[in-house]
Design a protein around this nucleic acid. Structure first.
Length: 600
DNA sequence: GCCGTTTTCGGCCCGACTGTTTTCAGTCG
């Protein structure tokens, strides 16, 4: 059995947790609400940070984290250097410790938690939730002031939800969510001619790597008809709630789907409001306020005019809303409050890469017999090429796994690669339409050596190098390993750079500034692997890479021709990372790309 | 406690929902 990893109290997640506890304690202690918000903002900012804040502290760069001012910075510095902060300890210990676990229960915030702990005399932090449950069952809560029978039952229901939350339904990978959403959209369009427009909302629209619930917006003049059709969606098991302007249903797939309905004339504001992210919206509303407008889901209202003459400015599209505020239109993928509003104001938003810009896929696996170290693809090179042609690609790369080094001699390997090159050359003769690129996905051994002898690279245009084993190395060792692999002249691309599998396995850690610097200096590209379970590099690291000027390549890592369409999800990750076509080498024309790949 | 092309002082997002209340506090997204 695997040992349970110790929680690193210096990790960003734990620091953020601690700051949120401080915010909760301050709420109970009656501190100013702005101070409370400041701690919450600091927590959020740290959760968003692409670097470990502990590392930034050690590099003396803590002031680079937004939301951390002199006060919180000094507490964290003390925490990092001494292992605890006197001030934070003091604040957290000044309230009953049994309050904290209750905050995990939905519907219970700091005020209610404090009251319950006090009135019910809950002492043990470990057993706090159990004691609360017991009190509810014994009807000791409904008699408390400001609580009633309904809230007592709600607490029981929410404790159950909380317990389920501990074995929380995993988030869906993006393509699965997309497929479920597409089915609902098709159904609604088919059954409801009153629909003028329909869009996905929330994280699905922003194309996050994983999705929780499915959200939709509809523009129509007949709310009732649309909502009625929605709640009768055949692949749903129950209606969670139904109101005049929306509804929620539970899908048979176990997921919740929410619908919001709006008049076509107000659709822009509604779409904007529910697309989020929360942080983008907060920033946008602050920005609108400075221009004299309050922004809500219906539009912009002037704040200085008297209530009688108050004019609400409505928008049928998001473009018009953003433009009215003096901003360029901001693509949903960028709406994370990572500087997009400032950029929109200065008209310097990136020209984001699009699926149509992609001229080919470089990392694909066929069933060609290379006696590979890992799995074969399921289709022949010919079948893969046919699909590449159908997708309109200009070029197409094969990158089977390298021949298995442990069972073959070096000359076996060279023989296999020579034969494969001949096969590919022959195939190119027969397939004039699509330019074939001869690559190989080569294992990076634990010591950073490559699993193919150097002589083997004469039979390739270039190599994609990837880590497939020994994931447990420390950050320093793993960084050294990858840097060594990239120092081979033929190693032009680092495949799925962190090795993560969404909802299954965390990626290994690398020292990113070092990796970026090496890629820049040696002119290597980092892969955005579009496989639904990978989406690796992640969006935040793509953004760092783009800032560093590191080249990217978007590949599907397909093992059959059907998976080639996953390219769109890799493009979404690139867009979320602010990548432009120039940053992505497989938007380049063939001649430029092949020159770059062959350059040693 | 943080932050700044309206500010280094005086601001700080918005509304829905819920339950317990006679006008609102707490929680959520």
């Amino acid at each position: 059995m695997k040992p349970v990893p110790a929680i690193d109290k210096f990790s960003n997640a734990e620091i953020a947790r601690m700051l949120r506890k401080v915010a909760a304690a301050y709420t109970i202690l009656g501190e100013s609400r702005f101070k409370i918000v400041a701690y919450e903002n600091a927590a959020t900012s740290i959760e968003h940070s692409t670097s470990e804040v502990k590392d930034l502290f050690e590099e003396g760069k803590l002031d680079a984290v937004p939301g951390l001012g002199p006060s919180i910075r000094s507490h964290l510095s003390e925490f990092f250097s001494k292992g605890s902060s006197k001030h934070i300890e003091q604040v957290l210990s000044s309230i009953n410790q049994a309050i904290f676990p209750l905050l995990e229960v939905p519907g219970i915030g700091p005020k209610k938690a404090e009251k319950l702990v006090k009135e019910l005399n809950i002492k043990s932090a470990q057993l706090a939730v159990n004691e609360l449950e017991k009190a509810a069952i014994e009807h000791k809560i409904s008699s408390l002031e400001t609580f009633g029978e309904k809230s007592e039952q709600d607490i029981l229901d929410n404790i159950e939800r909380f317990r389920k939350g501990q074995i929380k339904l995993k988030r869906m990978v993006l393509p699965l969510a997309d497929a479920l959403a597409q089915d609902i959209i098709s159904y609604l369009k088919e059954n409801c001619p009153q629909i003028e427009r329909i869009d996905k909302l929330g994280s699905l629209r922003r194309q996050l790597a994983t999705i929780g619930d499915l959200d939709f917006a509809v523009a129509t003049d007949d709310f009732e008809a649309v909502i009625d059709a929605f709640v009768h969606y055949p692949r749903s098991s129950s209606i969670i709630e139904r109101g005049p302007s929306g509804a929620s249903i539970l899908l048979t797939a176990g997921r919740q789907a929410d619908l919001r309905v709006s008049k076509p004339s107000e659709y822009g504001a509604m779409l904007q409001y529910f697309t989020g992210s929360k942080y983008h919206n907060i920033k946008l509303r602050e920005y609108a306020l400075k221009q004299g407008y309050s922004l809500n889901e219906y539009g912009l209202s002037e704040i200085n005019s008297s209530s009688k003459t108050k004019k609400v400015q409505t928008f049928d599209s998001e473009e018009k809303l953003y433009n009215f505020l003096g901003l360029d239109y901001i693509s949903p993928e960028l709406r994370e409050d990572f500087g997009e509003i400032e950029a929109a104001k200065s008209h310097i938003l990136p020209n984001l890469v699009k699926l149509a810009d992609i001229r080919g896929d470089l990392h694909t696996h066929s069933d060609y017999d290379v006696k590979p170290s890992h799995d074969y693809g399921q289709n022949s090179m010919e079948e893969m090429l046919n699909e590449a042609r159908a997708l309109g690609y200009e070029y197409f790369g094969f990158a089977e796994h390298n021949p298995k080094a442990t069972e073959l001699t070096q000359s076996d390997i060279l023989g296999i690669l020579a034969k494969r090159k001949k096969h590919i050359d022959g195939l190119q003769e027969k397939n004039k339409g699509v330019k074939i690129i001869n690559l190989l996905e080569v294992d990076i051994k634990p010591d950073g050596e490559l699993a193919v002898p150097e002589d083997g690279f004469q039979y390739l245009d270039a190599a994609i190098v990837s880590v497939h084993s020994v994931f447990g190395l420390s950050k320093e060792e793993m960084t050294k390993r990858v840097v060594k692999a990239l120092s081979y002249p033929a190693a032009k691309i680092l495949g799925h750079p962190t090795g993560r599998l969404l909802e299954q396995r965390e990626g290994f850690e690398l020292d990113w500034p070092t990796i970026f610097a090496v890629c820049k200096k040696l002119d290597k590209a980092l892969e955005i692997n579009a496989h639904p379970s990978r989406l690796d590099l992640s969006d935040t690291l793509v953004r760092e890479a783009v800032k560093f000027g590191v080249k990217l390549v978007i590949d599907t890592d397909s093992h059959n021709f059907e998976d080639l369409v996953n390219m769109q999800y890799g493009v979404s990750v690139a867009r979320r990372g602010w990548a432009e076509p120039e940053n992505v080498i497989n938007t380049w024309k063939y001649e430029r790309l092949i020159d770059w790949l062959k350059k040693r």
